[in-house]
Amino acid sequence: MDQQALLPQARLGEFVAFLAARQKLIGPVALGYNQYKFAEVTSLEELSLDYLPTILPPKKYFLPYHERLLSYDLSDGQGMEPVVEVEDITLFGLHTCDLAGIQCLNMVFSDHPRDLHYLTRKHHMTLIGLECTDYCDHYANCAMLRTHLPKGGYDLFMTEMNDHYYVDVNTYTGEVLVREADLFERVTPLALKELRSLRDAKKKIFQNELPIRYQDMPKLFDDTCDSEVWTQVGDKCLACGNCTNVCPTCYCFDMADEPELGLTRGHRVRIWDSCQHETFAEVAGGENFRGQRSERQRHRFNRKFHFPLERYKRVFCTGCGRCSRSCMAGIDLKETLNALIDERS
């Protein structure tokens, strides 16, 4: 089996139908107002493949915002059963930024202590990527992070060309899909040439959006810890938590026990939490060690560009631009970083 294949564009509809018949198929759908979300689809007509990053990233399928972890029964001692809510899902049309986001989450949840709920669910996901040939809008900063190009983390990856999709086959699951769909053709030298010229064109379009290399970011944050920029950002911030909820790499969660009415049985659940919330860093005694909005925003930026570089040797920003796009107060990631860079120089 070749590691690459071609899918004629005219047969994309058949491929989507094949995937939908196989297991639950999720892809980007339009909500109006140029906004999109990942939702279940059964046909190509329902999909919007030319889309801006969705409101919520695909993390909602890997780490649901309300997830049962175990069920308990106290009627006879302390009975507890782990629960993993899992189903086979194919995610279709993922941009490279979102694939990078999933790779970040994989690192976090594979780290000690391994998160078996996440890891079990991850094995039930089939990921099919779709290449961006141009910027989605001015909020994106993917070239800075080199996430505008495919770097693994998918089963199949599709690049739209003149008559075909160029498809990179990255896993055994991907191979099975290509074989069983029976819609794919062999890669031709002409197609290879076309892919190369497309990637060359991308080099001109996607240029580092900021006057800094990501490797130098931790130093920038060390130097600007007490910057006035954070005060200005804090004055704007409404602490609504949009930036963290829509972030593909934010994974903070809270835990709660939800009893049934009889009170002897119930579930332990985890729910997304956000470092932007007023009470996130509040501890016993009422002390809040990040009581200011400015401190919380600074913390968020550090959690993207500083701390993960030290721990995982990876930036936890994917350049998708969701945080800037969803911020009603207009706190813009690129503007904020530029302001920090300006102030230091």
């Binding site: 979300k37 609504c240 956000s274």
Partner: peptide, 20 residues
């Protein structure tokens, strides 16, 4: 909860009213 309705609104992936 001492956080904004926006949090749950984002979970529900509504188009933001301000964008409307």
């Amino acid at each position: 909860p001492d956080y904004a309705v926006c949090v749950e609104c984002k979970f529900n992936e509504n188009v933001c009213m301000y964008d409307k």
